[in-house]
Design a protein around this nucleic acid. Structure first.
Lengths: 256, 256
DNA sequence: CTCTCGCTCCCACTGGACGGAAGGACGACG
DNA sequence: CGTCGTCCTTCCGTCCAGTGGGAGCGAGAG
């Protein structure tokens, strides 16, 4: 008979983790077979691991038979101090911006060559959702992305410029033009996009600088339907809020 | 020599999961030794598992040497559809309440004999934080808890009444009195607490009923500093928002 | 200096993970 | 109604990877 541990490969634990890795923003619901494929695990092994994880509460089975991330991982994930200080400081200011504009407000930080969205308040007019908390979007196609890129180290800029992926027909994919835009962002103090990430939306974003330093800790952005004509008028609103965040950050950090 | 797999116990995978289980709201930062104790795992085994998890990104080591939940688990946790429909429907209404009152607004559902907080907007005056998204609080000592308890099945009510833990000197620990309060909640349509969970705060909460049914899907609550005198005046504000949520829930569910 | 505490590393042993294969459930198609 | 396709579940002999006692190490306290 067959069987027997044949592929030496990874450790037992890492196999279970590979199963979890199969889940992502683009694939929150998976069949067992899909999980097995994505984690490069034999079906029967995947079956057992998934069963154990489900039993634990890390995965859950839906009525339709597919699996999704379960309560336990939600609980655990909420414990992660991902930009915890920044978020707690910034949240009230995001609310202020939202109250003033009723649009979708974002807070993002740079994580390598991507923008990581750490906080978000949805607007009333539901603009197409491309960003949720936890999602990572390219730096060259979003407002917050351009702001973060404008203050990123040269090596990161070069890396990004080398692979400008097209998101819509309006995405800036010409390195020279993007470089020019970044210079403009630095000069003006805010960034704009027009349907560069998803059709139908424009965005404005500003840097959040820790007061008294030149450190850009995050980017604060707003997304509006492209029908709106007064987009750049929003920049001052964002700047006021960003200053507030930056000042508070400096205070909190002074305090240790 | 020593060694050798001696304790038959759990599966390999479940040991890694037990390590994760060591982390909780009350213990988000742990030393290796603490993890080993809490997961009932020999130190050397815990060491290896923690190293694997850290390597994967599920845990992270802090400068002080302790461990905390890492990015990977944050990413994964955000994928969990915990009350996703309710939250997406309710969020705008929470914002409305917050905009109108500037206080801390909560949305909670009942999970067994506890109230699970699924959404939260913090107020300006920072009231003592006892509830964060993901936390579970007793049903008898919070506003949203009383609302949820008032519509819970008898068996749950009995269970809760049997173990009324004291949180502050104002907590209602007399079953008879609580029962009376629950009746009053049902009659009036809202619940109140006065420094029953934490000193210095009062709260008001109302049920969120799916329109056209008697199903209480959640509870919507607000927490204010106890210096405030007009607390019950907030009930109508919450009720309007709760109706809105209930109506939208009914629509969404009709739509399948 | 010694003692404690917490972490890291080593390594012989063995019991539990591994995965191929067979069987089952369900639905679509002709 | 049989056949095929897809996906899930279960079984079981083999064997290797996980295990954990213990030694060693570095830091801090007394």
């Amino acid at each position: 008979m067959a069987g027997g541990a044949s592929s030496p490969g990874r450790s037992v634990t890492s196999r279970a983790l590979a199963v979890l890795d199969a889940f992502g923003p683009d694939s929150p619901r998976l069949t067992l077979t899909q999980i097995a494929e994505r984690s490069r695990t034999p079906l029967s092994t995947a079956h057992r691991l998934v069963a154990e994880l489900t039993d634990w509460g890390g995965l859950a089975r839906r009525p339709d038979g597919r699996y999704e991330v379960g309560h336990k991982l939600w609980d655990l994930g909420l414990l992660a101090p991902v930009e915890a200080e920044l978020r707690s400081v910034a949240s009230p200011f995001l609310l202020d911006v939202h109250t003033a504009t009723r649009d979708t407000v974002h807070l993002a930080v740079r994580e390598g060559p991507t923008a990581l969205y750490v906080e978000r308040i949805s607007g009333r007019e539901s603009v197409p959702v491309v960003s949720t908390v936890g999602s990572r979007l390219p730096l060259h196609a979003t407002g917050v992305g351009k702001v973060l890129l404008a203050s990123a180290p040269d090596e990161v800029v070069e890396q990004v410029l080398r692979s400008l992926t097209r998101q819509t027909r309006h995405t800036v994919v010409d390195p020279r033009r993007l470089r020019r835009e970044l210079a403009e962002v630095r000069r003006r103090g805010y960034a704009r996009t027009a349907e560069e990430m998803s059709l139908g939306t424009h965005s404005v974003a500003v840097p959040v600088q820790v007061e008294g330093t030149t450190v850009v800790a995050a980017a604060l952005g707003i997304v509006v339907p492209s029908s709106r004509r007064d987009v750049t008028r929003l920049a001052p609103v964002l700047q006021v809020a960003a200053r507030g965040i930056g000042r508070q950050l400096a205070r909190v950090r002074d305090f240790h």
